[in-house]
Design a protein around this nucleic acid. Structure first.
Lengths: 348, 348
DNA sequence: TTGAAAGCGCTAACAA
DNA sequence: TTGTTAGCGCTTTCAA
């Protein structure tokens, strides 16, 4: 079961040197003065025996495991978690770290989530990445912060941890600008009803962009509903059936846009001929499958995962100062992904 | 940085006993005869100091880390990975294990994937879960199997590893049966063009079910295309425009079903009034967002993850025999998820 | 009923 | 230039 029976000692005897020497050459210890021939011998022996370090023993000795605990909420719900995980994994591996994963329930009580954090802490992870599945303010478990911690897609009310979140506002601006650039002057927004940062920020981005373009944001139709296809259908129907319907529609997310597609179809409105639509989230499975393909704004999940891992490792490897080195929130751009749902309005 | 400074020794002095005794009582060592009062003292001290075991030290000593390496292909592509991860995490945690995650690229060469496996092996994982993102036959990295290994959603050509895969055939039967039960007698199938197990098995299930119902499977319309919405649209359009179109349509996956919805809409066919549709995969984001909701067949990703973790742990904890204890492939049911896309045919 | 001592595989002072 | 020695925190003979 124990896989690699051969250890540093075996290499030592094979090379005819001491374990210390083997350790020195294999770790490229700077202060060790070892003759080139000895180095060669050791490396050859190690290679030949197929030596692989036992990271557990190293960890015990060095008091660093090289493992990052990824505590992620609701891993299974969306593909978002996958992107965060992938970004974090890529970044971590590039720097010699590995991820240890624990799923935690967003809806669980503080005690349960504290237990989840404890599970990785026992494993002596060097640091923790705490990820949520949508941008929100997090009620952090009490034991978070016992090791350096970075928040992904979340902030805490007290702002004690460094964190990385999407630029919801900027993303909304990009979406509306795409509509504006295509020539639309009457643009509507269908928003989510939940009280989360993205709801208010996307609305703010929507309004500010219209205002900046010299339009009266107060006149722009805005309807809110649940952030799924049914909600999108309903909100879009309300807007499109109004007296003076918009020619461009910005949707809170791709699911709602999917509902808007249906509402448009029922009203005999073709996309993008009669109605241009922009979504948010870039859920490949949805945005890429709709017809016509949905122009949308991508959430930088991969980038947030990578940023968080890198930032955490920087903190770990930087001066072992207070661990709170560089708290504050970093905001990552949400780029527009152009597909085929935006065109010039029929009657500009 | 090192989080829990207090170790077994601290508890020992606090309780006025030896480290040995502390270890004994905290681990409930059966053969240790320790007085109830001593036990009480030790537990109180541990509790009071907030002692948490250092799993790394335990691992070094016990030669078991209690960590399972999850090597997963293309974690980010679909929500499937999330389900597998969740299932594996739940099962592993219930039995005191933790997951270590490594992403690997399905398209990468054997050498690169071997490196990915090596990364977790160095961490002394007790066993490995190797997961692919769709059911296929896997070209296993050479070092897989150095520790007990279970395959998730994949099999190897040589069948050397225990593995768990979805019952594609049974799922297809359930889908077709749903159509049959609703009264349809003319049923079509739009299939994937790729040569993967699901393509042939779902087709086989489709035909066998028709035959078993006394219909002539040879006459049933079958069209194949790429397994996305565009392919589904195209294949469905071909079938629906044919001389004698079916009243029920089974689709290789939900994406293709989404394309079929569009084809039906263009032909003025309402779902489920004029056409009943069944998908496969149960991609919540798609199946639940379509209108009407898509009746589909769920892939048991959560179950496969859980089964694999449990099976692996069984092997780990069972007699430390050959590790190949119980190779062979386990097949998990694909249940029908009923939404609203199936109804009785208009002209039975 | 309890404790002393050895050692898991590795690294790092310190000696030689 | 290299080797000896002492642990990292824990478990487990073995002895008391």
């Amino acid at each position: 079961m124990a896989r690699s029976n051969i250890g540093i000692k075996d290499v030592a005897v094979a090379a005819g040197v001491s374990a210390t020497t083997v350790s020195h050459v294999l770790n490229d210890v700077t202060y060790a003065r070892i003759s080139p021939e000895t180095r060669k011998k050791v490396k050859a022996a190690a290679e030949q025996l197929g030596y692989e370090p036992n990271r557990v023993a190293q960890a015990l000795r060095n008091r660093r495991t090289g493992v990052l605990g990824l505590v992620s909420e609701d891993v299974a719900t969306t593909p978002h978690a996958g992107r965060i995980i992938l970004g974090a994994d890529d970044a971590a591996r590039a720097r010699g770290y590995t991820l240890m994963l624990i799923n935690t329930a967003a809806t669980a009580g503080a005690a349960s989530r504290e237990g989840d954090v404890e599970a990785v802490l026992e494993r002596q992870v060097d640091g923790i990445l705490y990820a949520t599945m949508y941008h929100r303010v997090l009620d952090a478990p009490a034991n978070l912060g016992k090791v350096p911690t970075v928040l992904v897609d979340a902030v805490t009310a007290d702002g004690l941890f460094p964190s990385v979140v999407p630029d919801e506002y900027g993303g909304a601006r990009a979406a509306v600008r795409a509509l504006l650039d295509a020539g639309h002057t009457r643009i509507g927004f269908i928003n989510n009803v939940q009280d989360v940062p993205s709801t208010s920020e996307r609305l703010r981005g929507f309004r500010d962009t219209l205002t900046a373009a010299g339009l009266d944001a107060g006149l722009a139709p805005v309807e809110a509903s649940s952030s799924d296809a049914a909600g999108g259908y309903e909100a879009a129907a309300r807007i499109l059936r109004s007296g003076h319907p918009p020619s461009g529609l910005f949707c809170y997310n791709d699911q709602m846009a999917m509902g808007a597609y249906r509402a448009a179809a029922e009203l005999g409105l073709s996309i993008p001929g009669d109605l241009s639509v922009v979504g948010f989230d870039d859920q490949e499975l949805v945005a890429g499958s709709l017809f016509p393909g949905l122009t949308t704004v991508a959430l930088p999940h991969y980038g947030m995962g990578a940023w968080a891992a890198n930032h955490l490792i920087d903190a770990l490897e930087g001066a072992g100062d207070g661990s709170s080195a560089g708290a504050g929130t970093t905001v990552l751009e949400c780029p527009l992904v152009t597909r085929a749902s935006v065109a010039a309005p029929r009657n500009p």
